[in-house]
Simulated scan of single mutants.
Amino acid sequence: MMTALATVLDVQGDIVVVGCQQKSSCNHCSSKDSCGTGIVSKVLPGKVHHWAFHTDKKLTIGQMVEIGLPEKNLLQSAAIVYLVPLFFLLFGALFSEWLISPLMGIGEVTTIIIAGLSAWGGYFFAKHLSHRIEQNTEQQVSLVRVLGESISDTISVNAAG
């Protein structure tokens, strides 16, 4: 099971909604200042993932918690996102090179265009498949431990006292 830190966003009875900032692996190497990817990751904010789950513990909005995520679903989703468009690209290129180009007598431009369109279709297919896996993952998220109160609550208590 993989763990992640999350912030409690909403509490409705025994259902808790948490948000977790997606972290990039950038900014951890020595060339982060000269790398184009590192510069872009500083400018664009990360995606926030939301999960809802049942718990018996009393939580308040703003608390930090550690949640557990199933590794199998995350690895499946990553494999789908990377491999499906690649397979579509290769299939489109081979299909065009072996069938369409010889029949029409057109050169490599047709193969490149069909391969690109196939990869684009593979991207949308992978997005659909990964969305289904993500919904399945939402049902398996669990609360590992409660880390503490929200920072804003601590500051307001210290300011008042």
Score class of each variant (00 low, 15 high):
residue 93 A to E: 10
residue 64 M to H: 14
residue 34 S to T: 12
residue 64 M to Y: 10
residue 98 W to K: 03
residue 49 H to I: 09
residue 33 D to E: 10
residue 77 S to D: 03
residue 78 A to L: 11
residue 71 E to T: 09
residue 75 L to D: 10
residue 22 Q to S: 14
residue 61 I to V: 09
residue 28 H to K: 10
residue 68 G to S: 08
residue 26 C to W: 13
residue 55 T to M: 08
residue 42 K to Y: 15
residue 96 S to P: 06
residue 32 K to A: 12
residue 35 C to K: 00
residue 61 I to Q: 06
residue 31 S to H: 12
residue 48 V to H: 12
residue 79 A to V: 13
residue 28 H to T: 12
residue 49 H to W: 01
residue 79 A to L: 11
residue 99 L to C: 09
residue 96 S to V: 10
residue 66 E to C: 09
residue 76 Q to V: 02
residue 66 E to N: 06
residue 77 S to N: 09
residue 90 L to E: 00
residue 58 K to S: 08
residue 68 G to A: 08
residue 61 I to K: 15
residue 94 L to A: 11
residue 35 C to H: 04
residue 30 S to I: 15
residue 41 S to C: 12
residue 64 M to T: 06
residue 51 W to A: 08
residue 89 L to D: 01
residue 54 H to Y: 15
residue 47 K to Q: 03
residue 54 H to G: 04
residue 58 K to W: 08
residue 40 V to E: 07
residue 73 N to Q: 08
residue 21 Q to S: 07
residue 39 I to T: 12
residue 38 G to Y: 00
residue 33 D to G: 01
residue 100 I to T: 01
residue 80 I to G: 02
residue 85 P to I: 13
residue 41 S to E: 01
residue 98 W to Q: 07
residue 32 K to E: 14
residue 42 K to P: 00
residue 82 Y to D: 01
residue 28 H to S: 07
residue 41 S to F: 05
residue 54 H to S: 09
residue 83 L to F: 12
residue 78 A to R: 00
residue 63 Q to E: 05
residue 70 P to A: 13
residue 64 M to N: 05
residue 29 C to G: 10
residue 29 C to M: 06
residue 31 S to W: 14
residue 93 A to N: 15
residue 50 H to S: 12
residue 57 K to L: 04
residue 82 Y to R: 08
residue 24 S to A: 05
residue 69 L to I: 11
residue 36 G to W: 09
residue 48 V to I: 05
residue 55 T to A: 09
residue 54 H to I: 09
residue 45 P to I: 13
residue 35 C to A: 04
residue 44 L to T: 02
residue 68 G to L: 11
residue 65 V to Y: 10
residue 66 E to D: 10
residue 49 H to F: 11
residue 83 L to Y: 04
residue 85 P to V: 08
residue 75 L to F: 03
residue 22 Q to M: 14
residue 75 L to W: 02
residue 63 Q to Y: 03
residue 85 P to T: 13
residue 99 L to T: 13
residue 36 G to Y: 04
residue 55 T to I: 07
residue 35 C to V: 06
residue 77 S to V: 11
residue 43 V to M: 14
